[in-house]
Simulated scan of single mutants.
Amino acid sequence: MRNGFVAAAVIVAVNTLAPFSSPARAVPSPAEVEKQLDQAWEKLEPVIEQYNKVHSELLANQKKSKQLGERLRPVQLRVEMSLGQIGDIAARQYRIPRASAANAVLSSTSPQMMTDRLALLNYVARSDAAKVADVVKLRDDLAAQRAQVEALVAKQKRLDAELAKRRKTIQAEVDRLERLRAQATGGSSSGGSLRIGACPAVSIGGAAGTAVRTACAQIGKPYVWGADGPSSFDCSGLTQYAWKAAGVSLTHFTGAQWREGTPVDRADLRPGDLVFFYSDLHHVGMYVGNGLIVHASRAGVPVKMARMDSMPYMGARRP
């Protein structure tokens, strides 16, 4: 997501929150505070999920860069050995130092120059020259890929750090609402009943059964931004954690999880399916049967069960 769009989203979120903390307004009732928190969170959660997106991409790119580096090392060794061999042959033929002969290849500044110099040596080392050209090409291709990934990682790190700063700003606003709620409720917890039925409501076996039982076991654990367990979660972190227990890898980002699963009609939902809410798909929960879900809803509310129709439903995916 472009930096300007993220900044705009944060501004909207902060503006949404600001009126609720006006000192000129009387302290609202607990129900009003909960409504205000829900409205504010609809603005804040998309920003949090964009943070998750950037962070997940950063981790993936760092892993890819490391893998490319590991592939590059043996190729570089093969290049050095091959150049050493052809250097020995050329040195014997031309009676010049071995290092100078090898340098004739290494110092090539363009594919055409390399081709020309390899052709010069080809009659004394035809097979070796072809081998060196292939290895050098492979090395250069891998090095180019690695450079691209490292540039992307550097960009992601900058954006990740920028989002982290904005995240602090958002947290400050949420903390202010939490203090307002504490004043209105005397410090009692929010979110209503955490269990509104059996979890899972319908038994199921296999990987989906493992995932849904894992999700149900997290009920009562706190919501923390960017968390993916085992002691705290955000919405996509909970679904990622639950399916990981079943051996299925999901990205810690709602948009990616939407793409990683198979579409499921609402009438065909079964426990373990991922259900998505709001038009921008910024919230996800796990279906547990009988129209119920388990989800990590927002700050100040533990992981809990909810009715699926309590939020605007957009669709479902089966990992």
Rank of each mutant, 00 (worst) to 15 (best):
Leu152Glu: 15
Asp141Leu: 04
Glu150Cys: 01
Arg139Tyr: 13
Lys168Phe: 04
Arg139Phe: 11
Ala133Leu: 03
Arg139Ala: 14
Asp160Pro: 00
Val149Ile: 14
Ser188Asp: 07
Glu162Gly: 08
Gln145Asn: 06
Arg166Tyr: 13
Ala129Pro: 03
Ala154Arg: 04
Gln171Ala: 15
Asp160Val: 02
Ile170Phe: 05
Val149Cys: 02
Gln145Trp: 00
Leu142Gly: 03
Gly187Pro: 06
Glu173Asp: 08
Ala172Asn: 06
Ser188Phe: 06
Asp128Phe: 02
Lys131Ala: 09
Ser127Leu: 11
Ala129Val: 08
Asp140Met: 06
Leu152Met: 10
Leu163Ile: 12
Asp134Gln: 15
Glu162Leu: 09
Arg139His: 13
Asp141Thr: 14
Glu173Lys: 09
Lys155Trp: 04
Asp140Gln: 10
Ala182Arg: 10
Asp134Val: 14
Arg158Leu: 09
Ala172Pro: 00
Lys155Thr: 13
Ala161Asn: 11
Gln148Glu: 15
Thr185Val: 03
Asp140Val: 08
Ala130Asp: 10
Ile170Trp: 02
Asp175Leu: 08
Lys165Cys: 00
Gln156Phe: 04
Arg167Tyr: 01
Gly187Gln: 08
Leu152His: 06
Ala130Trp: 02
Ile170Gln: 08
Asp175Trp: 04
Gln171Asn: 12
Arg167Lys: 13
Val136Trp: 06
Glu162Asp: 13
Leu177His: 06
Asp134Pro: 01
Arg179Ala: 14
Gln148Gly: 08
Leu142Cys: 01
Gly187Met: 05
Arg139Val: 08
Ser188Pro: 00
Arg158Trp: 03
Glu150Gln: 15
Gln156Tyr: 09
Lys157Thr: 08
Val149Ser: 03
Arg139Ser: 14
Leu159Val: 10
Gln148Val: 13
Gln148Asn: 12
Lys155Arg: 15
Arg146Ala: 07
Glu162Ala: 15
Leu159Gly: 02
Gln171Glu: 14
Leu159Tyr: 04
Asp134Glu: 15
Arg167Ser: 12
Ala154Asn: 05
Asp140Arg: 07
Arg146Asn: 07
Gln183Arg: 15
Glu173His: 09
Asp141Gly: 09
Arg179Ser: 12
Leu177Cys: 07
Val174Phe: 07
Gly186Lys: 04
Lys137Val: 07
Arg167Gly: 12
Gly187Glu: 05
Lys157Cys: 01
Arg167Cys: 01
Lys137His: 08
Arg158Tyr: 03
Leu138Met: 10
Leu163Ala: 11
Val153Tyr: 02
Ala182Ile: 05
Glu178Cys: 00
Lys165Phe: 06
Ala154Pro: 00
